[in-house]
Amino acid sequence: MAKEIKIKKNKWFLAFWSLLAIILIMVFSIFFALFSDSYQSKDSRSSIQDSDATFNVVLTRKQVNAISAKFLKEQKIKNLSISADSKQVYVYGDIKFLGSKLNVGVIFDPSVTKNGNVLLKAKKLVAGSMPLPIGTVMSYIKATTDLPSFIGIDSSKKDISINLAKMKTGKLLAFKAKTINLPENKIIFQGGLK
Rank of each mutant, 00 (worst) to 15 (best):
residue 2 A to R: 13
residue 3 K to A: 15
residue 6 K to I: 04
residue 7 I to S: 00
residue 8 K to L: 07
residue 14 L to Q: 04
residue 19 L to P: 15
residue 26 M to L: 14
residue 26 M to G: 12
residue 27 V to P: 12
residue 33 A to Y: 08
residue 33 A to T: 01
residue 34 L to Q: 06
residue 38 S to Q: 09
residue 39 Y to M: 08
residue 40 Q to Y: 11
residue 41 S to L: 15
residue 45 R to A: 09
residue 46 S to W: 09
residue 55 F to P: 06
residue 55 F to S: 10
residue 59 L to H: 00
residue 61 R to L: 11
residue 62 K to N: 10
residue 64 V to F: 11
residue 65 N to V: 02
residue 66 A to M: 07
residue 68 S to H: 14
residue 73 K to N: 07
residue 82 I to S: 11
residue 83 S to N: 13
residue 88 Q to F: 08
residue 89 V to M: 14
residue 90 Y to F: 13
residue 90 Y to G: 01
residue 93 G to Y: 01
residue 99 G to C: 03
residue 100 S to T: 07
residue 102 L to V: 13
residue 105 G to R: 05
residue 106 V to R: 00
residue 111 S to E: 04
residue 114 K to C: 09
residue 116 G to I: 05
residue 116 G to S: 11
residue 116 G to L: 03
residue 121 K to R: 14
residue 124 K to F: 02
residue 124 K to H: 13
residue 125 L to D: 05
residue 125 L to C: 05
residue 127 A to I: 01
residue 128 G to R: 10
residue 128 G to M: 04
residue 134 I to D: 05
residue 136 T to G: 12
residue 136 T to C: 09
residue 145 T to I: 01
residue 147 L to W: 00
residue 148 P to H: 01
residue 152 G to F: 08
residue 155 S to A: 00
residue 158 K to W: 04
residue 162 I to S: 08
residue 166 K to Q: 08
residue 166 K to E: 09
residue 176 K to V: 13
residue 176 K to L: 08
residue 178 K to Q: 03
residue 178 K to V: 05
residue 180 I to N: 10
residue 181 N to S: 06
residue 182 L to D: 00
residue 183 P to F: 09
residue 186 K to F: 06
